[in-house]
């Protein structure tokens, strides 16, 4: 009886999960199909899940688009640099914050400051002025430093640390280990799922952000990929003059844009499986304890 209900439950689990999965796959398949289609069919909204008049011209055009690859490189650089900085700062801040007030007296003051910084901001003009007066305009630092402390991720990591058993730390301290050693040797190895999660969030955050590129880059050659792609959407209701036609006809190329979106999504697809194993196989505390 019990087994039967389990089977039924299993069946429905699979059904729901697969249905949801399929629904998530379709729009991307649609994008891929558009990217391989003829531009007129795409503009006619006639492409579903299979390319119409299959051709590779969009991808050929991307290969020749040197700004695309330039921006691609800048995005990669930003992700690597930005994520590293993020991880260092996240870990350094999350550890003291995971202590209670008894262990770290100033903990709550810091916490309040951080939450304040998360909730309030002065808008883009003062941020722009700061970046400009620091001489960071048009440098990679303008893309990575303003978001060096992703507060949401700090809080997330802090909660992972909180969940770790205290006994290990106490034992190490008894053996004369410093707090830094505790953090590096005990906390970090134990929180790989947490680290994987915040890394993923940091990577995705850096990769997808287009606005700081728009604001802090004065040269189009310095745009990261998403900023470059963001510009490709044009509002035709604003086109009132024939002189804008050139821009219109080139930008309205739906297949090319789809190809650019597909290519820009690939790195995120590739990175996921690497991080994923840390939260699927379940690196559990028990298994590391020995």
């Amino acid at each position: 009886m019990n087994k039967n209900t389990n089977k039924v439950a299993n069946f429905f689990t699979w059904l729901i999960v697969l249905a949801l999965t399929a629904s998530c796959l379709l729009p991307l398949v649609n994008m891929v199909a558009i990217s391989f289609s003829d531009s007129a069919s795409a503009a006619a909204n006639q492409v579903g899940l299979i390319p119409v008049h299959f051709n590779l011209s969009s991808y050929r055009m991307i290969l020749e688009d040197h700004q695309f690859w330039l921006s691609f490189g800048i995005s990669i650089e930003r992700v690597v640099l930005g994520t590293l900085i993020n991880l260092v700062l996240i870990v350094l801040m999350a550890y003291p914050l995971s202590k209670n007030k008894r262990d770290f007296h100033a903990r709550n003051i810091y916490m309040n400051l951080i939450i304040f910084a998360m909730l309030f901001n002065g808008g883009m003009i003062p941020s722009f002025i700061v970046i400009k007066s620091l001489g960071l305009m048009d440098t990679i630092w303008a893309l990575v430093l303003p978001g060096a402390v992703p507060i949401f991720n700090v809080i997330l990591m802090m909660n992972f640390f909180k969940g770790l058993p205290n006994a290990l730390e106490e034992a190490a301290i008894m053996d004369g280990a410093s707090k830094m050693t505790v953090l590096l040797k005990i906390y970090l190895p134990l929180s790989l799922p947490g680290l994987a999660t915040v890394s993923l969030f940091a990577i995705v955050g850096h990769w997808n952000d287009y606005f700081s590129g728009l604001l802090y880059m004065n040269r189009a050659a310095n745009y990261p990929l998403q900023t470059y792609i963001q510009q490709l959407n044009i509002d035709i209701t604003k086109v009132t003059d024939a002189s804008q036609l050139h821009a219109l006809t080139s930008i309205s190329n739906k297949t090319l844009n789809a190809a650019k979106i597909v290519v820009s999504t690939v790195p995120l697809l590739l990175i996921y499986p690497f991080l994923q194993k840390y939260f699927v196989t379940g690196m559990t505390i028990g298994s590391v304890k020995e």
Partner: peptide, 30 residues
């Protein structure tokens, strides 16, 4: 000692927040 260590750990992050979050908050007067 560990208090000091904790403060030191917080320091780099807080400096970044100071420059890139708290300073621009002056813009709230707008």
């Amino acid at each position: 000692d560990s208090q000091l260590m904790y403060h030191l750990m917080m320091l780099p992050g807080m400096l970044f927040l100071l420059v890139f979050s708290f300073v621009p908050m002056a813009g709230i007067v707008m």
